[in-house]
Amino acid sequence: MKTRSLVSIDDLNTAEIMKILKLAAEFEKNPVQDILHGKVVATLFFEPSTRTRLSFESAVNKLGGKVIGFTDASSSSVSKGETLNDTIRTVNNYADMIVMRHPIEGSARYASEIATVPVINAGDGANQHPTQTLLDLYSILKTQGSLDHLNICMVGDLKYGRTVHSLLMAMSRWSTSFNFVAPEELKMPDEYKLYLDNLGLEYHETADLASVIDNADIIYMTRVQRERFSDPMEYEKVKNAYVLYDHMLSGTKPGMKILHPLPRVNEINPDVDANDKAYYFEQALNGVYTRQAIICTLLGLK
């Protein structure tokens, strides 16, 4: 590793990614171990996040470590006007590792330069959320057996969605083809399409979900949020165009899986949940194993 922190998915080379995914598979087989005995992990959540925080805390607890921290900035000294610099320097004295979510972009990189213990970025504004990307990769690898030659269909908010951007960048290391399904206002930004062009990777854009899902190995659903639209009429027009129903899945590949970073609102109809192709809750469980692997790798314990 270049550093002992994990701020951006680009901090890891492909071999390091594969090593973490392999380790995650070992934790899946044997999730309760005493590897973190005597270790303290600080979870600093400057903005609330149920899933990511609980997943990290579960990962630490299963490995015998202890968790300290806060769950939103109002219950910390930040509300008294403390700088991030001072908070990190202080917490650095109390913990063997810092897991941080913060609304300001670049805050995690900054924290990793201040702290002497490893920092894991659990989301810095709209910038990076590398542990989500790694758990997505783990879910894809586990269900498809390989990360090579897959077709990934990304659906919903492709403009602001941090997770789809990171996943796109990560999957572009393998020969992946993409379908982007989004309303006009939420299309994949040009910089990512240019990135794929430069790598010679294939992608198609469409506003018609049904036309592309039969080719997909993975459908990656995201939430289309009302507040992203400048014109509320536009939202009303498109809000039902990006909803997945069970009846739409009849022609899809047998091994296809549906992923979603969660929380979902209405973009996956609950009638999909009973379908074998629905994988989003297992994906959330995979987050625990993946984070166990990340924590142990960064602490040099595995």
């Binding site: 991030l84 610099n85 609304p103 300001i104 972009e105 670049g106 805050s107 990189r109 900054y110 709209a126």
Partner: peptide, 14 residues
Amino acid sequence: KCMNPKCITNFEKV
């Protein structure tokens, strides 16, 4: 200067 108003460099002395 970073043009991103949400960048840490525009909030703290970085």
